[in-house]
């Protein structure tokens, strides 16, 4: 069960490419693989613990205040994670700057809390959190790899393509270090996945019928 969950969240139900969640942080922190990895670990920690905590008190969260209870728990976990990073991974926390704090607004975390953890037992919720966090991490690391290799000629700060400015041949693509390129890379990923797996293409949900389209 666990393996199937995880495999499904990696490709067929990937939170980024299929559910299109957590996009804004994906573009902000994927300029290099190192920041993408730290962000992935921070998000995995937050998503798993928030799913476990929310699932374990799910019978006692009054529906009228459920969102605010969930977001309070998530925000507290994020602050603690941020504090730990600032204490023990200072350089990386500098590079991630405000984006760790923005995990709070990452729709993936609240989305999983609301859609899964608030209705299911602790065990499956933990697996759901882990699976979705891994799916997010996979995309983040892929995007980070593409952007760092093409934008800076390095991978984890190790030289892949020697730069022209250092006597090599590679002219880095400046666009790759800018935020929009993350959208391009994610867009290409989605296109690649969906042209390989036709069953993942969404049907048009709420399109107007032909007769509704005519003006007169």
């Amino acid at each position: 069960m666990a393996m199937r969950e995880i495999r499904s969240a990696l490709i067929t139900n990937n939170p980024v490419t299929q559910q299109i969640l957590g996009i804004c942080s994906a573009l902000a922190v994927s300029t290099s693989v190192a920041t993408a990895l730290t962000m992935s670990m921070a998000l995995t920690a937050v998503l798993c613990t928030s799913n476990v905590i929310i699932s374990s008190i799910r019978h006692h969260i009054p529906p009228s205040i459920r969102l605010i209870v969930q977001i309070t728990i998530i925000a507290s976990l994020v602050i603690v994670t941020d504090q730990i990073l600032q204490a023990y991974a200072f350089e990386l926390s500098r590079q991630l700057s405000i984006f760790v704090g923005l995990i709070v607004t990452n729709c993936l975390v609240l989305g999983r809390a609301e859609a899964f953890a608030s209705r299911n037992p602790v065990g499956p919720s933990a697996i759901d959190g882990l699976a979705n966090a891994l799916g997010y991490s996979l995309i983040l690391l892929l995007v980070g790899t593409v952007r760092e290799v093409l934008g800076q000629g390095t991978w984890f700060a190790m030289t892949v393509f020697p730069l022209a400015s250092n006597g090599g041949w590679f002219e880095p693509i400046g666009l790759m270090t800018l935020a929009p390129s993350a959208y391009f890379v994610i867009g290409f990923l989605i296109w690649a996945i969906r042209s390989k797996r036709r069953d993942l293409v969404e049907r048009t949900g709420y399109g107007l019928r032909r007769e509704e389209l005519s003006d007169d």
Binding site: I61, P62, I65, I68, I73, A75, I79, V80, Y88, F90
Partner: peptide, 28 residues
């Protein structure tokens, strides 16, 4: 119950956050 849950969640979370901040401040 609504108020009770809201207050206990808020209290637990604020204890967690302030505890972590105070404990990690010297290292930061």
């Amino acid at each position: 119950k609504v108020f009770g849950v809201a207050i206990s969640v808020a209290l637990t979370c604020s204890l967690l956050v302030s505890g972590a901040t105070a404990y990690l401040r010297p290292v930061q």
